[in-house]
């Protein structure tokens, strides 16, 4: 059984996406994290483009372009500005033990693959085998949000999660209708800015972006 070349390329990009998800999980530096997020966006855009070309789905071209503009250029740029303004550029986070996080990550990946296999068999698309990877990226991004202590990496985790969902949509059903995608993209953009504003407030309040301080808000 020879899989067509385009689908091989998508598989490769999917693997790259997963690799980036793991790399983000283990990354200590905020700046590198943003760079990786941009790379993830680029991989996403490329894979969407390939799917669009090989299945001749016009609207996917738009989503590819949208991803490129939004996730490779706009949001990373905004995040860069944000950390410059907040002056958290050199934040090196101490995570909970990285190898343990990685092991949990591997467990999640196996779980996601197991979950996706029956669904993938139902989907008739060319790229169905990447569904597991998409699911795994979502879960890994979620894990990243849980184990991070600083606010900026958490937001990146949130955005990465959206990347995974987008990829899942492309691979399972050749993408959502354009209107939905536009809406989601707008939501993400607005979300990022709202987060940015929140950061400033959090920092004003606590002099730090360490979200452990938020625990103080609880009323006893």
């Amino acid at each position: 059984m020879a899989t067509p070349f385009s689908s091989q390329l998508v598989n490769l990009l999917a693997a790259f996406l997963l690799l980036l998800a793991f790399a983000m999980l283990s990354q200590r530096r905020v700046l590198t994290l943003i760079k990786m997020f941009a790379w993830q966006g680029a991989a996403l855009a490329a894979s969407t483009l390939i799917v669009a070309y090989s299945t001749d789905q016009k609207h996917l071209y738009f989503s590819a372009a949208l991803t490129l503009v939004l996730k490779v250029a706009l949001i990373p740029w905004a995040l860069h500005r944000l950390i410059d303004r907040l002056n958290v550029r050199w934040d090196v986070e101490t995570l909970i033990n990285i190898p343990i996080t990685m092991l949990i990550g591997i467990g999640l990946a196996i779980f996601a693959f197991a979950l996706a296999t029956p669904i993938a068999q139902m989907a008739g698309t060319l790229t169905r085998s990447t569904l597991g990877i998409a699911l795994a990226s979502v879960l890994l991004a979620f894990l990243m949000m849980i184990v991070r202590r600083k606010a900026v990496p958490q937001v990146i985790g949130f955005l990465a999660m959206e990347n995974g969902l987008f990829f899942a949509a492309t691979s399972a059903t050749y993408g959502m209708p354009l209107v939905v995608e536009l809406g989601v993209a707008l939501d993400v953009l607005v979300g990022t800015f709202i987060f940015g504003i929140f950061f400033f407030h959090i920092r004003e309040q606590f002099d730090s972006l360490d979200i452990r301080h938020m625990e103080k808000l609880k009323e006893d």
């Binding site: 190898p99 693959f113 296999t117 085998s129």
Partner: peptide, 22 residues
């Protein structure tokens, strides 16, 4: 070095998982 090599291990495991999946 443990981190470097556990990353290598992780990559190898991911490769294997992806092989089983794809």
């Amino acid at each position: 070095a443990p981190e470097f090599l556990s990353t290598a291990f992780l990559l190898a495991v991911l490769g294997m998982l992806i092989h089983f999946l794809v």
